[in-house]
Amino acid sequence: MAYGVDPSGFVLKRLPEILAEIQAANVATFGPGVTQTDQSPLGQLNGLHADLAATFWEIALSVYQALDPDQAEGVNLDRIAKLRLLERAPGESEIDFRQAITNAGRARIDMSDLSQALSAIAGVWVQTYVNDGDVADADGISAHSVAVAILGGDDDEIAKTVRAYVVPGIGTYGNTTLETTIEGFCRSIKIVRPAVVNVTIEVDVEAQSDRNGCPPPSALAIAAGLAQSLTGATRPRNGQDLTEFLVRQAIESRYPNVRVAAVRASRSPAAVGVVPVAFTFFEIMAVSADRITIIPV
């Protein structure tokens, strides 16, 4: 049997196999009458030799696992990520980080890598876009260009990160230009810094007790849940309109015993009116519980 690295992974040679090989080698050298019971001097040496060899094989397995992104953990996984210019995002789990390194289930490796790297910058929200076509797309992104919409973060760090993943010859698109210099070579990087637009939302809801007889959530709880669904990592992207469907999905998926009857909204501080409320690619809505009114009907 072959041991060590093979196409299926690492095959560990264990203590019983090692000891059997040593005993067989002794028989081949000294003949079948050689005494190597556990209590004999040769048997004691066999055991010591086998134990040391087994330790070596366990160390070899640990080294192999430390270099395999599917098995590495902790700092070893962080080291592997650096080979792909990736860093673990704050609070990111081992499973999610491992999938980012291996691109598991991701068809666009270049964009997933860029998003992962930018997400690792402290305090940012980021969305990446690409236009592979020969003309500008519906969002205005130039042909053969990448657009990075980002809130927060240090401009220099963002520019250097984008530059590491967007090779020369591929354009960048945005309303903010950042300058970078690496080893004497200068390059301008464009990013989208969307204008944050506060919105006011008013929702008519029909709420009832659930099938277990528990009362429906209060209006304040529904408002807080809606705000939580539309902020942070799950906030609507830049250019996304405020629609009835967006509000309905956020509330009804969180509270099964609440039905959205009507939605009115506006850009604050204007009075609420019919939806949708439209946003351009260079704008992004900001939702807060204190600007949400829930009206039971």
Rank of each mutant, 00 (worst) to 15 (best):
residue 201 I to D: 12
residue 207 A to M: 13
residue 123 G to W: 07
residue 68 D to G: 06
residue 141 I to G: 04
residue 268 S to C: 01
residue 274 V to I: 13
residue 91 G to P: 00
residue 150 I to P: 02
residue 55 T to C: 08
residue 205 V to S: 07
residue 223 A to T: 10
residue 269 P to H: 07
residue 210 D to Q: 01
residue 158 I to L: 02
residue 265 A to M: 07
residue 82 K to R: 14
residue 262 A to W: 00
residue 249 Q to W: 14
residue 161 T to E: 05
residue 269 P to Y: 09
residue 203 V to T: 14
residue 84 R to K: 15
residue 279 F to G: 06
residue 30 F to V: 10
residue 257 N to I: 04
residue 6 D to Q: 12
residue 275 V to K: 03
residue 218 S to A: 11
residue 168 P to A: 10
residue 257 N to E: 15
residue 50 A to L: 09
residue 3 Y to R: 10
residue 57 W to H: 06
residue 49 H to V: 13
residue 224 A to T: 15
residue 128 T to C: 15
residue 193 R to V: 11
residue 28 A to F: 03
residue 272 V to A: 00
residue 33 G to H: 13
residue 104 A to Y: 05
residue 178 L to F: 13
residue 2 A to S: 14
residue 170 I to G: 06
residue 40 S to C: 03
residue 208 Q to I: 03
residue 32 P to I: 09
residue 92 E to S: 08
residue 211 R to V: 14
residue 231 T to A: 08
residue 40 S to Q: 10
residue 70 D to M: 07
residue 247 V to N: 00
residue 54 A to M: 12
residue 215 P to Q: 08
residue 110 D to P: 08
residue 227 A to V: 01
residue 293 T to P: 01
residue 253 S to C: 03
residue 136 A to Y: 00
residue 141 I to W: 07
residue 121 I to F: 04
residue 92 E to K: 00
residue 122 A to V: 11
residue 128 T to W: 00
residue 263 V to W: 02
residue 284 I to H: 00
residue 180 T to Y: 00
residue 101 I to G: 08
residue 62 S to R: 13
residue 32 P to G: 06
residue 250 A to G: 02
residue 113 D to T: 12
residue 198 N to A: 15
residue 157 E to D: 10
residue 20 A to P: 06
residue 250 A to D: 06
residue 51 D to V: 00
residue 232 G to I: 01
residue 57 W to S: 05
residue 216 P to M: 01
residue 23 Q to E: 15
residue 10 F to P: 10
residue 156 D to E: 11
residue 29 T to F: 14
residue 242 L to Q: 05
residue 144 H to T: 09
residue 39 Q to Y: 09
residue 10 F to R: 04
residue 104 A to N: 15
residue 200 T to V: 14
residue 105 G to V: 08
residue 101 I to C: 06
residue 246 L to E: 05
residue 202 E to F: 09
residue 52 L to E: 05
residue 157 E to R: 06
residue 245 F to Y: 06
residue 121 I to C: 00
residue 21 E to D: 15
residue 9 G to A: 08
residue 89 A to V: 09
residue 38 D to M: 12
residue 282 F to E: 03
residue 221 A to I: 06
residue 281 F to T: 04
residue 263 V to K: 04
residue 67 L to G: 10
residue 146 V to G: 13
residue 220 L to F: 13
residue 73 E to V: 14
residue 24 A to F: 01
residue 209 S to G: 07
residue 48 L to T: 09
residue 244 E to Y: 11
residue 30 F to Y: 14
residue 121 I to P: 00
residue 148 V to Y: 00
residue 131 N to H: 05
residue 261 A to N: 08
residue 283 E to D: 12
residue 238 N to C: 12
residue 83 L to F: 12
residue 201 I to G: 11
